[in-house]
Design a binder for these strands. Sequence first.
RNA 1: GCCCGGGUGGCGAAACCGGUAGACGCAAGGGACUUAAAAUCCCUUGGGAGGAAACUCCCGUGCAGGUUCGAGUCCUGCCCCGGGCACCA
Length: 817
Amino acid sequence: MTRDTSGQVCVASRDMRDVPIYDPAAIEAAWQARWAERRTNEPDLDSPARPFYNLMMFPYPSAEGLHVGNMFAFTGADIHGRFQRLVGNTVFEPIGYDAFGIHSENYALARGINPAKLIPQNIATFRRQLHRMGGMFDWRHELSTTDPGYYRWTQWLFLQLFKAGLAYRKRAAVNWCPKDKTVLANEQVINGQCERCGTAVEQRSLDQWFFRITEYAGRLLDNLDRLDWSESTVALQRNWIGRSEGAELVFRTPAGQAITVFTTRPDTVFGATYLVLAPEHPLVDELTAAEQRPAVRAYQRAVQSRDIVARRVGEKKKTGEFLGSYARNPATDESIPIWIADYVLMEYGTGAIMAVPGHDTRDHEFATQFKLPIREVVRVEGEQLPVISEEGVLVNSRQFDGLGCREGARRIVAWLAERGVGSSKVQYRLHDWCISRQRYWGPPIPIIYCDACGPVAVPERDLPVELPLIEDFRPDDSGVSPLARHTEWYNVPCPSCGKAGRRETDVSDTFLDSSWYYLRYPSTEFTDRPFDPARTKTWLPVTTYIGGNEHAVLHLLYSRFITMVLKDFGHVEFEEPFPKLRAHGLIVKDGAKMSKSRGNVVVPDAYVQQWGADTFRMYLMFLGPFQEGGDFRDTGITGIRRFLDKVWVLAHEAVTAAEGPVPPEVLTKLHQTIRKVTADTESLNYNTAIAAMMEYVNLVREKDAANKTTLRRLILLLAPYAPHFAEELWALLGGTERSVFDVRWPEVDETFLAGGSVEIAVQVNGKLRGRLVLGRGASEEQVVALALEMDGVKKFVNGGKIRKAIYVQDRVLNLVV
RNA sequence: GCCCGGGUGGCGAAACCGGUAGACGCAAGGGACUUAAAAUCCCUUGGGAGGAAACUCCCGUGCAGGUUCGAGUCCUGCCCCGGGCACCA
């Protein structure tokens, strides 16, 4: 019996020859030290032969440390990087920390310690864990978004948008989380609740900074067609941008006011029997008749106080109020009533709709409730109103009667456009990006307010605007940042006129930090520029980006937007930062997402400690398809360890044993394995690549064909997956290179694939009746002749005539009788 | 409601372009080695029926149909699970 220092039982050679014990802890520590000392993972950034920028989504350094989901993601990405290096690319694989933001701040609040003191401890833990997992990280280029040398440029970025008119300030109803005491982006509101703490979100009206991402909606959408991204991610982004084609139509009041509505169904304009404005619509006041004023005011107040949950999600029952005034339907010329109702949202379209109760479920509900006229303008045989389908013909639409919906829509828009009361319009669901946060833990927005000059940009030479270390970093419900309690910090002269000014006390959204970090990585050592032009030209855009779909919308959309802006202002030469993106799956535990609140977070440390990083890495990859994720159970780790033990023993046997001839079938299998592992690793199908290596090892053992030359090839295949293990065995098998990662990936020799025998399935009428083992490439005649001799086949052919024989070369023969 | 995934043994999963369903691994059972246990090695393992046995047959990829010589894979209509969006006009 043998045990290593951790108490782990280890194998001896299967024939009891003495083989040193595979002790991952020792090997892994030694190789990690060697990599650091030899600068193995530090590519030449200035003149790389074949630059390959392998990017993974950087973590936020939570107090719990790296969890198993992070390790799954990073391992998958690291395998990709290591493989790319082995096939001859100069791989740059950086890592960093997205350490600003509400996660970190909330934890700091709970502990009562300033995040500026707490975060470095968390980062230290992450750094240690990232080293331990054996990633091919270039530690020279590690970054943290909380470093003033980083956020200086985040602030610079803000200023570029500000100067271009893409950052603006407006008072807006925003999502307010009463528990976290902060404004949330729409994207951070899930079912009307704060995505962090689950508290119901309220509406508040505050002055906020916004970025005009909506100006880029069309480009952000159109470019998706040109990106090599996981389909799932593309679908999420498309959905989020939400393009709708339709028309804007103008309804006029007798007094001449114009109410513009957006509709996707201009074909139904003859059925518009009333108008509905959002309660906050700017025209509401002037359109309200005197006698309706009290009721309208009361309704507006009621809507405002109702939380966003009720407005957005719940409440089947429609509510609304008549304004007491009318407008003309531009198609029918009829006078129709104007209402307000909270089912119409100010943020979408024009904040006003033409209601077509015959052909819209919501309008139908509302009209029924308030007894408003419902008119049929689209007829579908055998269907009752409301008819939503566009597969009908227009009726009650005068000269347009009888047309199909689509054709009708075109003609009606053209007809209204002639009279200046309509035009076609593309509408997006995307909203502008609110980047203000009334919090402490973020980069201060670099603006100074001056009574004379208005909001003035902090001069670039004065960046960074450093976040001061304050004791009272706790937010309150005043709606202003904790920084607003520090006059000594915010009272500064106006950079423009020199009179008394006041700093912006809000900080920016974490998503701004992460919207450009990939530009910073190659240039971390430059203190005088955000990203060096030469380095950027060499390394960007990112070659492969790997990350989770939880960032499919926010992070990826914002990064694309920021890159487009930088392109438009001449700072970079490309507009898509991530031409190739692969989404990995989610690791769940017992069917549920891992979260602190569920208490099901799995920390990898104990596993890495017990089994070694290599075993745990491979185990995570063997769990299921990388791009699908899976449920974490630790029941299968032994399988991977047994596999590595077998390879370990084979390698040691091969070193001492005399080199014998390799059986041909082992050689064939070897080249099949090289082919499969190459293809699967390239396409991120790591689970099946591992299975293929296991199959090969099983065969080598069965044939007792351990051999240095062939084992070296196996070690190379294994290297991306188990890097320390591979280094150790490569050296053992006589590798003279400084690292196995400086060797070239093995190539498939087709001549070995051609040989060997195949098993051909023989079917009668599509049912399997026997198998033939033959040399590759047998002709149909030969196979049919042999098949007819088989007992199982004879029995079912039963003397009948073969009507047809279908032969798929080397695979299957089907006899039809 | 709309948009993505997905449904295959006791479990995680494989299956190229429609061509031998269940590779690989876990767990389980049996055996070898051992004083014993662990480790290791060998065998069995989708369900059912028959046979002393070598074996043989039938059924089987969420459900119901269809296309095809042949369907886990393609088509039509459903059911269920996961994720995203959602009073978006």
